[in-house]
Design a binder for these strands. Structure first.
Length: 719
RNA sequence: GCCGGGGUGGCGGAAUUGGCAGACGCGGCGGACUUAAAAUCCGCUGGAGCAAUCCUUGUGGGUUCGAGUCCCACCCUCGGCACCA
């Protein structure tokens, strides 16, 4: 709660405008009660289930992690510790049921790269499941299924590989190979995640002394076990086609397994391959399919397999279900009770929230601290009234963050997670700014969560965040700011020294908002200077030059009006696109212009006041305190933040004269000032008279072509 | 390896999508004010050259009257994924 106080204070000190009456604290029972309630809803809908599976284990955090929370080469997203594997029974959400819908981004305006990251994460691939016949005494299983995206290479299968964890390995291993196979499995289990994930590592494996039959050609092929095959993808078994798969090729070379070409490269003479040929080609050595291009081969062989019932077209996803159990203390307890008689029983809604006890003991046991909290664990079964044990794991905190934005619509609601009408009024979120690092975590889970709630009938929209914008990160001393590096720049000291508005404006100015940038002390002083200049500009009295001729005044005012309207246009458009850096450049240019205007003083006082008025209003979102102060000191009506945003008039913003570039053979030779509305005929006249420099280049040359781009340039092509 | 973003002055970065490259700001240089310094203000500031002029957007080709922008090849860099069958 202390860190919340600090954050709150910093946000306020920066002048961030939030409706604090809507503040939501996800770790308090009035909130997590509803997180638990959602869990029950998902459970009812069979979107939450319990299963035993090999899961990611962080030894530092002493908890399991979802796949999305293991980053880089097997590193815990939270504490940077290498992650291991454990076989545990855990709670999962069926996010895979939504894989196809999550691939669609209809009606949302999101950065392309985030969409791509999510699509890659889901990893949809089309292929064929193929059954290889198994005839092994004493084993009921009569087939081993594999998944392949290249069924056209099936005649090239010369071995089969099972993942070390594959359930059939133990049963199929022949007695004489038993010791060797077990040793191999033990060795691969000892391998760290990093080692196992490394693509550089040499592929190794062991023949288990058993065979399957490739039904397409009736050949018996040996079964191997190798840890380059993953149990978690496809079926945990892979057909080895060394001629047309890089990994299989290396593996076959190492163990002298035959390599049979079945996809002929374009100019292939029948010789041995130097490396796996994974491109398209023509089918050879493939029985009745010989001569087909591989693309057609895929379809023909798949059709044939389906006809014979030896296989089926299949779609495979890389995405795994979302593991939400955590052995952490924080996080909402999973509202489930285990009863010896009734099994797994959900906590009745009326009994929510299941409170997190505040006196749990922390022991580095690798199990939830709640497990040793007798009062918490022991309860009665809601179904039979007998003794029951509570689930002691807590929920992934990403679950809390999957719906907090809905809670903002009605933070006090205590008979429902939110007020339905308010939800309908506010949701979905119009613009969501957040870091790209959440691409396949928070931003992904929230999409799933909303879709699930929609199907349960709790919300009526499909996507949580209509527009997404990723802000960049600010780096200091060439490194990302982090507490462990001790290079965190807190806004506090700068706010104290230069003011919140200077800090805000600096952060907006230093680089495109989505890019972030490097904090630089000397650059911020430029912003500070600029604000000081505005201060003088606004508060030092404007004294119109009484000797100025009326014609002069008219011209100057017209110029000023044009510049003003152009500025309003630039600032407004940049603001909509969240291009704050160029928005501020526009305001700086406007300030510089106004400084010159003030110097010459050839405009009326009312025109001057009007310009100041617009400058302040355009600057108000950037520098809210500063502009309010100037607004008040110049006796304007409180508050600047209640004023209308300035509107621009296209006609007034229109330039009357432009600089036209004169090129000869594409090289800049002259510039002339011409009226905007100039016609090509008029231009020819003017070119003769005015483009003196350019004409020197045209002297004695034959003009082959003249290219005129209205409003931009004329280019003479000579000789 | 695959996917995506990017490479522009001493620095952060602009450039209406093929049309004046370097807006705006920082830094630097020169000047004014000051006994002096700071602050402030004014001027200059991509490179070479006394100059006319020439060169210049990672490198090399190409398309075009014209390329930072489009196409091809390559190099570097940042982010994501990575034995996904």
């Amino acid at each position: 709660m202390q860190n919340i106080d600090i954050m709150r204070r910093q946000l306020k000190s920066l002048g961030a405008i939030y409706d604090w009456s809507r503040e939501v604290i996800t770790c308090l029972p009035d909130y997590y009660k509803w997180t638990q309630w959602f869990f029950l809803k998902l459970y009812e809908k069979e979107l939450a289930y319990r299963d035993r599976a090999p899961v990611n284990w962080c030894p530092q955090c002493q908890t399991v992690l979802a796949n999305e929370q293991v980053v880089g080469e097997g590193i815990c997203e939270r504490c940077d510790t290498p992650v291991g594997r454990r076989d545990l029974e855990q709670w999962f959400f069926r996010i895979t049921s939504y894989a196809d819908e999550l691939l669609e981004f209809d009606g949302v305006d999101w950065p392309e790269r985030i969409k791509i990251m999510q699509r890659n994460w889901i990893g949809k691939s089309f292929g064929t499941g193929i059954s290889f016949a198994l005839d092994h005494p004493g084993i009921e299983e009569k087939e081993i299924r594999v998944f392949t995206t290249r069924p056209d290479t099936t005649f090239g299968v010369t071995f089969m590989v099972l993942a070390p964890e594959h359930p059939l390995v133990a049963q199929l291993t022949s007695p004489d190979k038993k010791a060797e196979v077990e040793a191999y499995i033990a060795k691969s289990q000892r391998r760290s995640e990093i080692e196992r994930l490394s693509t550089e590592r040499e592929k190794d494996g062991v023949f288990i002394g058993a065979y399957v039959t490739n039904r397409l050609n009736g050949e018996k092929v040996p079964i191997w076990v190798a840890d380059y095959v993953l149990l978690s993808y496809g079926t945990g078994a892979v057909m080895g086609v060394p001629a047309h798969d890089e990994r299989d090729f290396i593996f076959a070379k190492k163990y002298d397994i035959p390599i049979r070409v079945v996809i002929a490269p374009p100019d292939w003479q029948g010789g041995e391959l130097e490396e796996a040929y994974i491109e398209e080609g023509t089918l050879v050595n493939s029985g009745q399919f010989n001569g087909l291009p591989s693309r057609q081969g895929i379809e023909a062989i798949s059709d044939f397999l389906e006809e014979k019932d030896w296989g089926r077209r299949t779609i495979s996803y890389r995405l795994r279900d979302w593991l939400i159990s955590r052995q952490r203390y924080w996080g909402a307890p999973i509202p489930m009770i285990y009863c010896d008689k009734c099994g797994i029983v959900p906590v009745p809604e009326a009994d929510l929230p299941v409170l997190l006890p505040e006196d749990a003991e922390f022991k580095p046991t690798g199990e939830s601290p709640l497990k040793y909290h007798e009062q918490f664990v022991n309860t009665t079964c809601p179904r039979c009234g007998g003794p029951g044990r509570r689930e002691t794991d807590t929920m992934d905190t990403f679950m809390c963050s999957s719906w907090y934005f809905i809670r903002y619509t009605s933070p006090g609601s205590d008979d429902a997670p939110f007020d339905d009408n308010k939800n309908k009024f506010w949701m979905p979120v119009d613009l969501y700014t957040g870091g790209a690092e959440h691409a396949v975590m928070h931003l992904f889970y929230s999409r799933f969560f909303i879709k699930a709630l929609r199907d349960i009938g709790i919300v009526d929209f499909d996507e949580p965040f209509t527009r997404l914008f990723n802000q960049g990160i600010i780096i200091a001393e060439k490194q990302k700011m982090s507490k462990s590096l001790g290079n965190v720049i807190t806004p506090d000291e700068y706010v104290a020294e230069l003011g919140a508005d200077a800090v805000r404006a600096y952060l907006m100015f230093l680089a495109p908002w989505e890019q972030g940038g490097e904090w630089n002390d000397s650059s911020i002083s430029g912003i500070s200077r600029w604000l000081n200049r505005i201060w003088q500009l606004v508060l030092d009295e404007y004294k119109p030059d009484e000797k100025a001729a009326p014609g002069r005044i008219q011209t100057e005012e017209k110029e000023l009006s044009r510049f003003t309207h152009q500025t309003i246009r630039r600032v407004t458009q940049d603001l909509e696109k969240l291009r704050f850096n160029t928005m501020l450049s526009a305001l700086m240019e406007f300030t510089n212009y106004l400084a010159k205007v003030k110097e010459t003083a050839a405009i009326s006082n009312s025109a001057w006041q009007e310009s100041i008025d617009i400058l302040l209003r355009l600057l108000a979102p950037t520098a809210p305190h500063f502009t309010e102060e100037l607004w008040e000191r110049t006796k304007r009506q409180y508050s600047i933040h209640n004023q209308l945003w300035p509107q621009w008039d296209e006609k007034l913003a229109q330039d009357e004269e432009i600089t036209l570039v004169v090129q000869v053979n594409g090289k800049l030779r002259d510039r002339i000032t011409v009226p905007v509305s100039i016609t090509e005929d008029e231009l020819s006249q003017i070119l003769q008279e005015k483009a003196i420099k350019a004409n020197a280049y045209l002297e004695g040359k034959k003009i082959r072509k003249r290219i005129y781009v209205p409003g931009r340039l004329v280019n003479f092509v000579v000789q």
